[in-house]
């Protein structure tokens, strides 16, 4: 049979087989590359967020010291309506939950790191400022004053 002949080692024409022994090594190399360069996805988003664009952006480094607050309209709008909602961790929250959320995040961390904590606001561009301002007032109350308005970079 012609097909079987193609794979047999003792093929008459003597096509040398390519060794695949190094394939696992290559794949492991790729694996480690991705493990090192990426971070775990923080949460499953329940709100739709299209970030606004800005030019004067700064990089938010030290991801371990950042807490995220998401504000946008729910992605399952037939279930949750279309008005803007706040998402903390994996669930919807009310404005008054923001303070306890920040306190809880602080309690998880080392005391020395608390002044370095930054809150990143990921807000949909269509959101009205009312809810954003309320969240900001809550943050002020719990002294979480370092803030980053998450944006995409606009390329000129």
């Amino acid at each position: 049979m012609k097909g079987a002949h193609k794979f047999s080692k003792k093929g008459g024409k003597g096509n040398p087989t390519i060794s695949t022994a190094s394939l696992p090594d290559i794949v492991f190399m790729l694996l480690f590359f991705f493990m090192v360069t990426t971070v775990m996805r923080e949460v499953d988003l329940k709100v739709v967020i299209v970030q606004p664009e800005a030019t004067e952006v700064e990089k938010l480094d030290k991801k371990g010291l950042v807490d995220y607050i998401y504000i946008g309209s729910p992605s399952e709008s037939d279930k949750f309506g279309t008005s803007s909602r706040i998402q903390l961790n994996d669930q919807f929250a009310r404005v008054q939950d923001v303070g306890p959320f920040i306190e809880a995040k602080r309690a998880e961390r080392d005391e020395a790191e608390v002044p370095l904590l930054t809150t990143s606001l990921k807000v949909d561009r269509e959101t009205k400022m009312g809810i954003v301002t309320e969240v900001k007032q809550e943050l002020r109350k719990v002294q979480a004053l370092k803030l980053s308005y998450s944006t995409r970079e606009r390329l000129n």
Binding site: E58, L60, K63, S120, R140, K141, L145, K146, S148, T151
Partner: peptide, 18 residues
């Protein structure tokens, strides 16, 4: 699948204390 690569960019601001 489980990781993201994007770096977070944003406008850094400081809120006034209460």
């Amino acid at each position: 699948v489980t990781t993201t690569m994007d770096t977070d960019l944003g406008l850094m601001r400081k809120l006034p204390p209460p």
